[in-house]
């Protein structure tokens, strides 16, 4: 399974094994990675799983869906590389993926 690196706002890095057939959000939750709340449990209904994808990975992680784009209106400090981590499916393609968590989920 691919490894994913989460970098916290203060620079703390954590590399974990992704969980098969899951999402980046679920991988973070199963590995107790802080900085992702996921209040709605991955239904694209809360925007508390907001992350910034390392720019080098933007192509591989794909495009935001229309629903995700709408939900991002409820996140704070949305940037070009903002994604909702529950909407990124883990695959072997993502080996080495790097994402940053915001200072605060909101």
């Amino acid at each position: 399974m691919p490894k994913i690196t989460f970098i916290e706002f203060d620079g703390t890095e954590r590399t974990v094994d992704a969980v098969a057939n899951s999402t980046v959000m679920e991988t973070a939750r199963r590995n107790d990675v802080p900085g992702i709340e996921a209040e709605c449990g991955g239904s694209c209904a809360c925007a508390t799983c907001h992350i910034y994808v390392d720019p080098r990975w933007l192509e591989k992680t794909g495009e935001r869906s229309a629903m995700e784009e709408d939900m991002l209106d409820f996140a704070f400090d949305v940037r070009e590389n903002s994604r909702l981590s529950c909407q990124i499916k883990v695959s072997d393609e993502l080996e080495g993926l790097i994402v940053r968590t915001p200072e605060k989920q909101f």
């Binding site: 209040e39 809360c46 925007a47 209106d73 409820f74």
Partner: peptide, 10 residues
């Protein structure tokens, strides 16, 4: 005056 509307949370 500022009115922020970012949805609801529980």
């Amino acid at each position: 005056t500022m009115l922020p509307f970012f949805g609801l949370t529980m």
